[in-house]
Computed example of a mutant assay.
Amino acid sequence: MVCANLENCNLRGTNMEEPHGNRTNMEGVNLKGANLEGSQMAGVNLRVATLKNANLQNCDLRGAVLAGADLENCDLSGSDLHEANLRGANLKGAAFELMLTPLHMSYVAN
């Protein structure tokens, strides 16, 4: 699904985990306004994806690559972001209530 346009789709409860350990590649995908509540997305590649206004409540995003993703106004409440890569992601207005694991974010100034 690389660069797919799934804007406003309902993928609630989707399982994007591959039993053979392969990582689902959704790099650059448009999931603006999508409902992904409760989805299993551990290790998924959502680098530079558009997830603006998406519902990501209670998702398993352990080890997911969200570097450079647009997560503006996303609801990530109750999601597991353990070891997720959020480097350069737009988190403006994103909700992080009831996180399962602490979220450690750092900024490195040049």
Results as ranks from 00 to 15, higher is better:
residue 104 H to S: 10
residue 58 N to C: 03
residue 80 D to T: 13
residue 44 V to S: 02
residue 79 S to P: 10
residue 106 S to R: 02
residue 74 C to W: 01
residue 110 N to K: 11
residue 30 N to M: 02
residue 16 M to R: 10
residue 84 A to W: 08
residue 59 C to V: 11
residue 58 N to Q: 08
residue 53 N to C: 08
residue 101 T to E: 06
residue 103 L to S: 11
residue 34 A to Q: 04
residue 51 L to N: 08
residue 78 G to W: 03
residue 21 G to I: 07
residue 52 K to Q: 14
residue 69 A to S: 08
residue 53 N to W: 12
residue 52 K to C: 11
residue 46 L to V: 02
residue 70 D to P: 11
residue 70 D to S: 04
residue 25 N to R: 14
residue 53 N to M: 07
residue 46 L to C: 04
residue 27 E to A: 15
residue 73 N to A: 10
residue 56 L to Y: 03
residue 65 V to C: 07
residue 10 N to Y: 11
residue 98 L to R: 12
residue 88 G to L: 06
residue 80 D to K: 14
residue 69 A to D: 01
residue 33 G to Y: 00
residue 46 L to I: 01
residue 7 E to H: 09
residue 54 A to N: 05
residue 47 R to Q: 11
residue 60 D to F: 09
residue 9 C to F: 09
residue 28 G to P: 13
residue 37 E to M: 13
residue 56 L to V: 03
residue 22 N to W: 09
residue 42 A to C: 15
residue 20 H to W: 15
residue 35 N to G: 06
residue 75 D to P: 03
residue 80 D to E: 12
residue 61 L to H: 10
residue 26 M to T: 06
residue 105 M to K: 13
residue 44 V to R: 02
residue 15 N to S: 09
residue 60 D to Y: 09
residue 106 S to I: 05
residue 24 T to L: 09
residue 62 R to Y: 09
residue 50 T to N: 14
residue 17 E to P: 13
residue 56 L to D: 00
residue 13 G to Q: 00
residue 59 C to M: 06
residue 98 L to G: 12
residue 29 V to W: 06
residue 65 V to G: 07
residue 71 L to R: 11
residue 99 M to L: 08
residue 10 N to T: 12
residue 40 Q to M: 10
residue 46 L to F: 05
residue 77 S to I: 04
residue 3 C to R: 15
residue 59 C to E: 01
residue 24 T to W: 03
residue 87 R to Y: 04
residue 22 N to Q: 08
residue 54 A to S: 02
residue 101 T to W: 06
residue 25 N to E: 06
residue 52 K to L: 11
residue 67 A to C: 03
residue 1 M to A: 15
residue 9 C to Q: 04
residue 51 L to A: 00
residue 95 A to H: 12
residue 91 L to R: 05
residue 65 V to Y: 11
residue 34 A to K: 04
residue 20 H to R: 11
residue 89 A to M: 00
residue 91 L to N: 12
residue 82 H to W: 14
residue 57 Q to D: 07
residue 42 A to K: 14
residue 3 C to Y: 14
residue 62 R to Q: 15
residue 92 K to Y: 02
residue 102 P to Q: 00
residue 42 A to T: 14
residue 40 Q to F: 13
residue 66 L to H: 09
residue 14 T to G: 09
residue 101 T to M: 01
residue 52 K to P: 08
residue 53 N to T: 11
residue 22 N to R: 11
residue 80 D to Q: 13
residue 21 G to Q: 00
residue 16 M to P: 08
residue 51 L to Q: 03
residue 5 N to S: 11
residue 36 L to T: 05
residue 51 L to I: 02
residue 93 G to P: 00
residue 27 E to L: 14
residue 69 A to G: 00
residue 29 V to T: 15
residue 11 L to Y: 00
residue 66 L to S: 03
residue 91 L to C: 05
residue 109 A to C: 01
residue 43 G to S: 00
residue 20 H to M: 05
residue 38 G to C: 03
residue 26 M to K: 07
residue 88 G to Q: 09
residue 55 N to C: 07
residue 108 V to K: 02
residue 87 R to N: 11
residue 45 N to G: 00
residue 109 A to W: 03
residue 40 Q to V: 07
residue 91 L to F: 10
residue 36 L to S: 00
residue 73 N to T: 13
residue 110 N to Y: 05
residue 80 D to S: 15
residue 43 G to C: 00
